[in-house]
Write a protein that binds this DNA or RNA. Structure first.
Lengths: 329, 329
DNA sequence: CTGTTAGCGCGTTCAT
DNA sequence: ATGAACGCGCTAACAG
């Protein structure tokens, strides 16, 4: 409730002077130490906080960042929640409000908010699966001079800075973890080539051969695909002592199938997933997983966007994943 | 980018007149049909949208609602995400921005945001487990004349309107569903008395006896508790053909244990959980569940809060749950 | 029927 | 070293 006027009034000085002192922007002039102290003291006493609306209005800004969220991660992975947590934290620190919008389908995405939102936010944070449909939307914002940061598996446009987990590292770390746990024949199931590359790099680093028959490429990240992969490997008589899955769901499916075939987890086969989702603690054998650190991703993306709004340069960055070991390895 | 000034300028009329026409607030006076049409046309042509900052500043408001989220639902239940979806939708419709804040622990909750946020939001939406710690926080907001709506399992304070699922109905509907599927001896595991009451009411409505030995009260909603309950019932030689669990996690634990003992699900025992979380589709037998309809809860809570901000009366309400049938029943 | 004035809270410019 | 004036975009009261 305390405004500049309040503190100016109670001190018998002008509002402008108070503003200058509190913002440390004295322009060409100075200020007597005495009144300076008095102003600062009064501001603290009255718990002064500038009205964000007035500040933004005056600065020709909106005091708001758009946060558009596309589906990301498997349902139940909790990825969106963590991401929002990080974003919210950074925004609150900078006193920016949020224009939050969820989109289920790609179509909705292009249709709804953009035209209205372009003029009502200082910047846009776009989270979700990287999809070409999104490009025109983003171009629209940029044309208005609104900074955009994406939080996608891959950059949507080269010109737009992207923050995400290091995809290759996900595959690499998962595989390296199993190697360190003693596995020597490691199978892999999933859809992203980058993660497969990480898997291969880890094998190479340990001087182990890569066998294509142990890699099962999938269309999605679904539970069923993990089971199907294990069935196929077993049917083909492949031997393996570890499974790296590109999602916890797939890892879970694989684990179910292994247990159904009487294979002991982790004694005979170790399993590791990706996402570090809540189901890791709900599986028959608690599932080790590589965390995408989405909270950190959200925080960094939001901070970068705020920098961009402040006129600084933005550039893509990548967040290192973390291995979380549980009973399955 | 179009402001009142733009359209006033291009029409040669005053800004005030444009404002009055567009807001249909003509006060004591009228306006010639001709200029009225011209103004409306120009506004549409220029895609005029009032600057929310200026509107709020002028109205002495903040244009922002606080959304404080406490842990709610099991991890992986997706409850928070659905809730936020509903809240965001309602807020966007009313052009209100969001002050979003997540709190992990009860302590954080009381300490951080409140003192700063009280003066920077038009209203507060508090979501989470109902906990006495929250009372003083809420009182603080109300003392400032800031409307508060809670979204908790139970009302936090009698004076604060609460929106949530009908807790008794959750237990009632889950039980009724199993009865309709042919079950006659239904066990129940969980911690909330209200849901137990619903369970008993359903039995009574079907003329079935209530047997205390088939009810297992728990401390949390954890997976392990579901398994423990089944073990206890089996060890005691109880017979039952259905299990109602108060969470999907507990239902899952129960299902694991049943399968481990060679009981067929759903042929010999049907299982139903509560939350309709994503793990329902990830369990060995797809899990039937009662949905809390959190998106609808969020929407209603936000709309109620916006009403409250507009000075209307608010009163608690309850959202009816929905049974989602899957393979386990 | 229409325009002028004033002020929401703030920061900047220029004058004193 | 300090203050007056101005305007960001909008609306309400009052004047003509």
């Amino acid at each position: 409730v305390a405004s500049l006027k309040d503190i100016a009034g109670s001190l018998g000085v002008s509002v402008a002077l108070v503003s200058k002192v509190l913002n440390r922007r004295m322009g060409t002039s100075g200020c007597s130490e005495k009144t300076r102290k008095a102003i600062l003291a009064k501001a603290k006493q009255l718990r002064f906080r500038p009205n964000p609306l007035a500040v933004a209005l005056r600065a020709g800004r909106k005091g708001t960042v758009g946060v558009f969220v596309h589906p990301i991660g498997n349902p139940g992975s909790g990825l969106v929640e963590s991401l929002l947590d990080g974003i919210a934290e950074a925004c609150n620190r900078n006193r920016e409000r949020i224009w939050l919008s969820f989109f289920k389908t790609g179509d909705e995405f292009g249709e709804r908010a953009p035209s209205e939102a372009q003029h009502e936010v200082d910047g846009l944070l776009l989270a979700g699966v990287s999809h070409p449909e999104l490009a025109p939307l983003l171009r629209g914002f940029r044309k208005q001079g609104v900074p955009v940061v994406s939080v996608c598996t891959r950059p949507v446009l080269p010109s737009i800075p992207n923050v995400f987990t290091d995809e290759e590292a996900l595959g690499y770390l998962a595989t390296r973890h199993l190697l360190e746990r003693g596995c020597r024949r490691i199978a892999h199931v999933g859809r992203l080539p980058s993660r497969i590359r990480g898997y291969r790099r880890a094998l190479r680093a340990h001087g182990l051969p890569f066998s294509p028959a142990l890699v099962r490429e999938t269309k999605e990240f679904a539970l069923g695909e993990g089971g199907a992969a294990v069935r196929a490997w077993l049917a083909a008589g492949m031997r393996f002592d570890g499974v790296v899955a590109q999602s916890d769901n797939q890892a879970l499916g694989a684990m179910y199938e292994l247990l159904r075939h009487g294979r002991k987890v982790p004694q005979e086969v170790k399993v590791v997933g990706i996402d570090n989702s809540p189901i890791c603690d709900l599986s028959p054998v608690a599932l080790s997983s590589v965390s995408q650190e989405m909270q950190e991703v959200g925080r960094r993306a939001a901070e970068m966007l705020l920098d961009g709004i402040a006129g600084k340069r933005m550039s893509s960055c990548v967040v290192p994943p973390q291995v979380i070991r549980r009973a399955s390895s």
